[in-house]
Structures are given as C-alpha cells and as structure tokens.
Amino acid sequence: MIPTTYPSAEDIARLTAKALLEVGAVHFNARDPFIHTSGLPAPTYVDCRKLISFPRIRATLMDFLTVTVMRDAGMEAFDNVAGGETAGIPFAALVAERMALPMTYIRKKPKGHGRGARIEGVMAEGDRVLLIEDMTTDGGSKLSFVDAIRETGATCGHTGVIFSYGIYPEMAGTLGDHGVTLHALATWWDVLAEAKRQHAFDEETLTAVEAYLDDPRGWQAAHNS
C-alpha cells in the first residue's frame, strides 16, 4: 500500500535514528574500534539488517523510505525497484510493494553457471530503476550496481538507503559524477543526536564518536595501528 502521509525530513531522521538505537543496530566503542571493510578503524558500527526482524519498525521505515523517494524524485519517476545483493534485497521488495512496481535484484558478481546473470527478475530496456540498499558509507559501492543496471539499457539516477554515514564530503561527488542522487533517511549525526538525548552511551564514548564524525580521516589515521 502506497503511504499517503509525509512526515518532515527532520522527523523521519529522528525517528529512524531512534529505531536503529531501539533494535540494537547501533554500536559505539572508542576503546576497541571496529575495523571496517576498508581495513580502517572506526568507533561506530551500524547493522541495518537487524531491522528486518522487527515488523513494526521495518514497516514504518519502509513507509519513510517510500515517501522520501516519492517526495524528492517524483511519484511517477520509476518503473522498477532493484535491490543490491544481499542487504538491499528485502528492503527493495518492501519498497516495491508499496510503490506497486516490479522488483529485481542485482548480484555483486555474475553467477558462475547458467546464464551468468547479474540481474534477477525482469528489467526492461528503458526502465527507470530505483536502486535500494540498506546503507552507504562513501557511495562507492553503489556504482557497480548502477553500472549493472545501465548495462541492460535501463536507467538509474536515484538510490535510496535507510542510513548514510553523512561524514564523507566526497560522497556527493562520487555519486553525482555518476549521475546518481542519494535519498537517505538518517546519518550518523542524527544517531549521535538521538543517542545524546537518550543518554544511550557514556559521555566519554559520545565525545569520542563526535570527534570521529568531525574528522573521520584524521581519527582513523590517529588510531590505525
């Protein structure tokens, strides 16, 4: 069912941050930093995949993502909703259901057998495709999925995510130079603000996280042993 209510972007960001904290998707640890796939340390980690196990929160955030994309990009802007393997697949299915559109998904690599396909489902030449993922850091990981969509003859100028780091200034250029607009519900700044309101972590941890968000590259360089 297509949502018909449109909360403000500020309310959506606050409620999304609150939901991520409520389900235990947010982890802060400055003393023993997490190592991201880049190999660099960070005092923050978010696991949006947890959301699929919480039906009420899941439904609310998918309503938020649907109305955000429709408000920002247009109500008739898309012909197909695609999810990126693997975390984007369930969220793409839920958004596609709400938008009453076909759903497809994109493999990270072609299958090693059969047709060797990267796109599963039906995606037609000329389709305007909305790429859905759970989150983005600096935007780079989205480009491979976008290129796979475009190789079919379809177009992809928009990607929607639940969570964007929001701390890497180069992200806008990474996606923008590729002709892609990002639509995100919340960032680390929204989560930090909500964590402070809730006193969800001790002051030392919150201060360290804020220092990281202010200068992620500098923080990583100082803590990369």
Rank of each mutant, 00 (worst) to 15 (best):
P3R: 09
T5E: 04
S8G: 02
A9I: 03
D11M: 06
I12E: 02
R14S: 08
L15A: 13
A17C: 06
A17F: 00
L20P: 00
V26C: 14
F28M: 02
A30G: 09
I35P: 07
L40G: 13
P41K: 03
P43F: 06
V46R: 04
C48K: 07
C48A: 13
R49G: 11
R49Y: 13
K50T: 09
L51F: 12
S53K: 09
F54Y: 12
I57F: 15
I57Q: 06
I57R: 08
R58M: 14
A59V: 11
M62R: 07
T68H: 03
M70F: 14
D72V: 14
G74W: 12
G74H: 13
G74A: 12
M75K: 14
E76D: 15
A82R: 02
A82G: 08
A82M: 06
G83P: 08
G84Q: 05
I89F: 12
P90E: 10
A93S: 15
V95Y: 05
E97H: 15
M99D: 01
L101T: 11
P102Y: 04
P102N: 04
R107E: 04
P110H: 05
K111L: 11
G112Q: 05
H113V: 08
H113A: 11
G114R: 02
R115S: 15
G116F: 11
R118V: 07
A124N: 13
E125L: 12
G126P: 06
D127S: 14
V129Y: 01
L130M: 10
L130S: 04
L131F: 07
T136N: 11
T136M: 11
T137I: 12
D138K: 07
D138Y: 09
D138M: 10
G140H: 07
S144F: 13
F145Q: 02
I149P: 02
I149S: 00
R150Q: 06
E151Y: 09
E151V: 09
C156E: 00
C156W: 00
T159H: 13
T159R: 15
G160T: 04
G160Q: 00
I162W: 14
I162S: 14
F163L: 01
F163Q: 01
F163A: 00
S164W: 08
G166T: 01
T174M: 06
L175N: 03
L175I: 08
G176W: 04
H183A: 15
A186Q: 00
A186C: 09
T187N: 05
L192N: 04
L192T: 04
A195R: 00
K196V: 03
R197A: 11
A200G: 06
F201Q: 02
D202W: 11
T207W: 08
T207R: 10
A208Q: 01
A211P: 04
A211L: 07
L213K: 01
L213P: 01
P216R: 06
G218L: 08
G218W: 05
W219A: 04
H223P: 02
N224F: 11
